Amino acid sequence: MGRKSPYPAEFRNDALALYRAAGGKLTYAAVAADVGVTGETLRSWVRQADELVGRANGHGEPSAEGRDEELARLRAESRRLRRAEKEWELEREILRRAAQYFAKEMRA
C-alpha cells in the first residue's frame, strides 16, 4: 500500500466529479490544472474509483441506485460551480472597472 494522500477525500471526490461531469470533453490534465493537481494524480484517482466501484458491484458497472445518487451529486455540484462562476465574473468586472478608474486617474 502507498503513503497516505495529502489531499482530503472530499477534494478527490470533487475532482473526480468535475472530470466525470466533463463527459470526456476535457483531458485529465485540463481538469487537473483547474483543481491544482497533476494529470497523473487525477488519472490515478479516477482509476482507483473505478476499481472500487467494480469491486463493490462485482463488475465495472455502477448500480442504478449508485448512478442516480452520483447524478444527483453531480447536478448539485454543477449548480454550486455555476453560482461560483457567476460570483467570479462579478468580481472580475469590479476589478476591471477599478483598473479603468485608476488608469484614468493616473492619466489625469
Rank of each mutant, 00 (worst) to 15 (best):
A15V: 11
L26G: 00
V35N: 02
G58I: 05
L26Y: 08
E61W: 08
R67H: 04
R20I: 11
V53R: 12
G54V: 00
G58H: 07
R12P: 05
G24N: 01
T41C: 09
A56C: 07
A30G: 05
A56L: 14
L26N: 07
A29H: 09
V53F: 03
L42Y: 02
R55D: 13
G23T: 05
A17K: 09
G23R: 08
L18D: 14
A32G: 05
E61C: 04
V53P: 03
S63K: 04
G66V: 01
P62E: 10
R12T: 07
W45G: 10
A29W: 06
A49E: 15
D14P: 02
G60N: 09
S44F: 05
A33V: 04
A56D: 14
A56Y: 07
A56W: 08
G23E: 10
L26S: 13
V35A: 03
A17S: 15
R67S: 07
Y19E: 05
T38N: 01
N57D: 03
L42I: 03
V35S: 01
T27K: 01
R47M: 12
V35H: 00
S44W: 06
E51C: 05
G58S: 09
L16C: 14
S63G: 09
Q48M: 06
L52H: 12
W45R: 10
T38R: 01
D50R: 14
A32F: 01
G58Q: 07
V31C: 08
L52S: 11
Q48E: 13
W45Q: 09
G39L: 08
A33W: 05
S44N: 12
G60W: 07
G36R: 12
G66D: 13
E51S: 06
L16T: 06
T38V: 02
G58Y: 02
V37M: 04
E51R: 12
G66W: 10
A56V: 04
A15E: 11
R47D: 14
